[in-house]
Amino acid sequence: MSLPDAFAAQADTCTRMGSPFMGQLLSILAADWPTDSALGRKFAGFTGDIGPAGHSLPLRIAGGLHALVLSDGAPELAAVYPPHSATDESLRAEVLSALERHQAFLLDWTDSPPQTNEVRRSAALIAGAHVALNHFNLPIHLSELGASGGLNLMWDQYALEIDGARFGTDMPAVLLSPEWTGAMPPKANPVIADRAGVDLNPLDPTRADHLLRLTAYLWADQPDRLSMTRAAASVATTQPQQGDAIDWLGPRLAAAPQGRLHLIQHTVAWQYFPDAVQARGKALIEAAGAQATANRPLAWLSMETDGDTTGKVGAALTLRLWPGDLTLDLGRADFHGRWVKWAYTG
C-alpha cells in the first residue's frame, strides 16, 4: 500500500467510525503529504505494512498533530481543530504549516506506534465479568494482556448502564452507555482482590506526558472519549508492567491464589500478537485451565476481531471458563465500545 492510499483508507475508516474530522484531515494528507521533507523521507523509509495492522503511519502523524493541539503547542492549528469547524482550504493551510514548523516534534513523536486505552471497551469487560461471576462467585485475581495505561484494569470503578439498569458501582468515575441490543447480562457484585497488567510499552496515566500520548490518539471531534479517558485516569491505581505478554502471564498463572477467580482479559490486543505468540499463549492458558478447580477457577475474556465484514465492523466477545472448559459466545462489540450486540442468554 502506498502512503497516499494508506491515508485515504484510514480516512474512510475514521469517517465510518464516526469521525468526519479525521476523514477530512487524513484526506488532506493523502493529497498533500510533503514528500520532500524530513517527515516525508522518514515515512518513505518504512517497509512492510504501513496501515493500521502494521506501522499505522496515518494515525502516527494524526496523533502528533492532535498532541500539538492538546498541549497548546500550536495555537494556529488549534483554531481549525474541533470544536471549531474549518474548510478544507483553511485546515490544509494550517496542517501543512504545522508539519513544517513543528517538524522536530513530529519526527520524535512518530518514532512510536499509536497507543490508546479505549475506556468504552470496559462496557464489554463489565458484562463479561458478570457472566464469569455467575459461574464462579469469588473475588477476582485480574490480569490484562496488552494493558497500555491500565485504564481498563479499573472497570470496577466504572458502571455500565443499559435502559436504566446499572451494572457496577453507584458512584462511577465513568458511566458507559453503549447502544445495546440483546438480553441483559446477569447481575453480580464484582470484587477485584488484585489487578495487574502487561504491555510492551506501558504508560502511566498519572504522568502528564503519558496521558497526552493516550489522549492524542483519540479523535478530536469525539470529546466524550477524551473526557472519559481523563476521568478514568483520575482513578488509575495500577501501572502495567513492561514485557512480553505471554512471558509475564506464565508466572502469574502459576501464582494465582486459592479462593480467587483468575480473570484474564484483553481487548483488541491479542490480534496483534504474532501467530507463534498466540499459539504459545493459548497453550499456556489451556494448560492452566486443565489444572483449575472450583476454588481456583480460570476465566479467559477476550474482545478481538472476528474478521466479520458482512455487518458492523467489530470484535467478538468470547469467554472461556475452567474447570469444565466451557466456551461462551457473548456477542460482538464495536472496537471503540459504541455498541454491543449481546448474544448470551444464560
Score class of each variant (00 low, 15 high):
D204M: 06
P205Q: 02
R207H: 09
R207I: 12
L211K: 02
R213D: 09
L214P: 00
T215W: 13
Y217I: 10
L218E: 13
L218Q: 12
L218M: 13
W219G: 13
W219D: 10
W219M: 15
A220W: 06
A220S: 14
D221A: 13
P223G: 04
R225P: 01
R225W: 11
S227K: 12
S227V: 08
M228Y: 07
T229I: 09
R230G: 08
R230V: 14
A232I: 01
A232C: 00
A233M: 11
S234L: 04
S234K: 04
V235Q: 05
A236H: 07
A236P: 04
T237G: 12
T237D: 13
T237H: 10
T237S: 12
T238V: 15
T238W: 11
Q239G: 01
Q239M: 02
Q239S: 03
Q241I: 01
Q242A: 13
G243R: 15
G243V: 00
A245T: 01
A245F: 01
A245Y: 07
D247L: 04
W248F: 06
L249T: 05
G250V: 05
R252M: 11
L253V: 11
L253P: 04
L253W: 08
A255F: 05
A256R: 14
A256Y: 12
P257A: 05
Q258G: 03
G259P: 07
H262S: 03
H262T: 12
L263F: 02
Q265E: 11
Q265T: 15
Q265Y: 12
H266G: 00
H266Q: 11
H266A: 01
V268Y: 04
V268M: 04
A269P: 10
A269S: 12
W270A: 03
Y272R: 07
Y272C: 13
Y272T: 05
Y272E: 08
F273V: 02
F273R: 06
F273T: 07
F273A: 09
A276Q: 15
A276V: 13
Q278G: 12
A279R: 11
A279N: 03
A279F: 00
R280F: 05
G281I: 04
K282F: 02
K282S: 08
K282R: 14
K282E: 15
A283L: 03
A283P: 02
I285A: 10
I285P: 14
I285D: 14
E286S: 11
A287M: 13
A287W: 10
A287K: 15
A287Y: 06
A288S: 13
A290R: 15
A290I: 03
A290V: 03
A290C: 14
A290W: 00
N295L: 09
R296M: 00
P297I: 05
L298C: 03
W300Q: 04
W300M: 09
L301T: 02
S302R: 15
S302G: 08
M303E: 07
M303C: 14
E304K: 10
D306G: 14
D306S: 09
G307S: 10
G307E: 09
G307D: 10
D308M: 07
D308R: 10
G311D: 01
G311N: 03
K312I: 00
G314Y: 00
G314D: 06
A315Q: 13
A316G: 09
A316R: 14
A316L: 03
A316D: 08
L317K: 09
L317V: 02
L317D: 08
